[in-house]
Amino acid sequence: MKAGAPSMRISGGSALVLAGHGSLFSPESALPIYQHAASLRNTGMFAAVYECFWKEEPSYRNVLYEVEEERVYLVPDFLSHGYFTREILPREFGLTGPVTRRNSSEIRYCEPPGRHPRMAEAIMAQAEKALAQTDCRDVALLLVGHGTDRNENSAETAWEQAERIRRSGRFAECGVAFLEQEPSVLGWRDLVGPRDLVVVPFFLSEGKHSYTDIPRRMGLACHPRDPGFRNPQTMEGGRRVYYAGTAGMAPTLDQVILAQVEAFDEAHPLV
């Protein structure tokens, strides 16, 4: 187990099901779910760890044929609540509430990792990795999420995590911007002070949003997939901009998932 791992006691014989989105077009979409599952298998804390996806195989419905354990922790491997965690997953898994009992088995429906307080640590770890030796106390962190006018949860989670980062005092400041809602990432210069900046995409996986959409809208000359990309990029007035990996690709995200399982057991003690 990694240092700083939650000191949890999961009763023997439990399964963990990680439900991701996946994609028919982008292989990177499912990658963090596979990585989280592999890492959590290695902890030996669960009798079995299963991945399942909305767009890839196995589907949410079919994975239950594979699960043989009576107690199942179902973790939506998403950064925030939204349509999938509130409607699709409960419907596809036949959930009746936080704990769904069916014959002798039960499904314990946990919160997405992106909502856990430890997610702030994962975001800061991604930022610090991009900064390398640079002192982060002199740098502003900009968390850039997708956002949508149709669902407030996505933005709310980013704001919550930004507040935790501010309270940590590890960065000079922390701002929030979005691709599809206000405050738009187009106006990033107005969202943080005129100092060096590290950008952390608040997405689970890498993909078009993190590689292209955010850098383009920020006016960065070099995008993460460009051959010559390296941190930092110098912009007007000598301001340096560091571009980090997505929050969901943080190496400690498996520990955040475990922390959500632990939080679930605290809120809904095992009978």
Binding site: P58, N62, V63, Y65, E66
Partner: peptide
Amino acid sequence: LRVLYPGAVALLVAWEGKRLVPT
């Protein structure tokens, strides 16, 4: 096999056990 053909064995077992209900 789970990686190659996710759910293949579980679905076959359920089918042979008449527990698999096609949608």
